[in-house]
């Protein structure tokens, strides 16, 4: 807790940017249910649980054509 209090100017922007990326990816996963590989049940945990890298992997490798 002490560390969180001391370093909040770092953690708040980090969490915020991770949140924006994860939510954007989640919206895309839900709206475009045709993926290059994998299923909805696979991509939702990937974009939500793997910080930063999950959404990047989804957008680079997983997204299907619009």
């Amino acid at each position: 807790m002490e560390m969180l209090q001391e370093y909040w100017p770092f953690f708040v922007p980090l969490i915020a940017s991770q949140f924006i990326l994860a939510v954007t990816a989640l919206v895309h996963v839900l709206r475009h249910p045709n993926y290059r590989f994998g299923t909805k049940a696979f991509w939702i945990p990937v974009v939500l649980l793997i910080q930063f890298i999950g959404p990047v992997i989804y957008f680079v490798f997983g997204r299907g054509e619009d």
Binding site: L14, S17, L21, A25, F52, F59
Partner: peptide
């Protein structure tokens, strides 16, 4: 295609980290 968003957030994250 979210390229801009990916690059900005990833590089911003590095900046903080």
């Amino acid at each position: 295609t979210h390229r801009l968003l990916i690059i900005l957030t990833i590089f911003f994250m590095f900046g903080v980290m």
